[in-house]
Design a protein around this nucleic acid. Structure first.
Length: 111
DNA sequence: AGCTTGACTTTGA
DNA sequence: GTCAAAGCCAAGC
């Protein structure tokens, strides 16, 4: 069993699951929380695989700019925005309004 | 087996 | 402040 090292993806999922509704986080924050700030891209890969997970709040994960970069990977390029707006997050021009306010810091929860 | 791409971030100019 | 390039790990071909 390759349980020697925790699966990166598994860690990402575990973290994303802890994101409360109405809040968002960035790929870098997640990877940094996992101890690999340079593997921010892998977080994106994890999201891609997360498509097999039902009710996965992938829309709560955006880039460090607060821009919905992964919206194109959703069922429709507007699904992500609609989901965010549904949770009370305002999105304009594929960007989250008051990103700093809705930003959810994983360290704050895990610590 | 090896090379390319990818939902990012950081640093340099 | 904006633009360009490098780094990173993993999956796909």
């Amino acid at each position: 069993m390759n349980r020697d090292k925790f699966n990166f993806f598994q860690s990402v999922y575990n973290l994303v699951w802890q994101i409360p509704a109405g809040r968002v986080t960035s790929y870098g924050a997640i990877s940094k929380c996992l101890g690999t700030p340079k593997s921010s891209r892998m977080v994106g890969w994890a999201m891609n695989v997360s498509h097999g997970i039902p009710n996965f709040p992938a829309h709560r994960v955006v880039n460090r700019n607060g821009m919905l970069t992964g919206k194109n990977h959703f069922e429709t390029p507007i699904t992500m925005q609609q989901l965010l707006e549904k949770e009370g997050i305002e999105v304009v021009d594929d960007g989250i309004v008051d990103f700093s306010k809705v930003f959810w810091d994983p360290f704050k929860e895990i610590l």
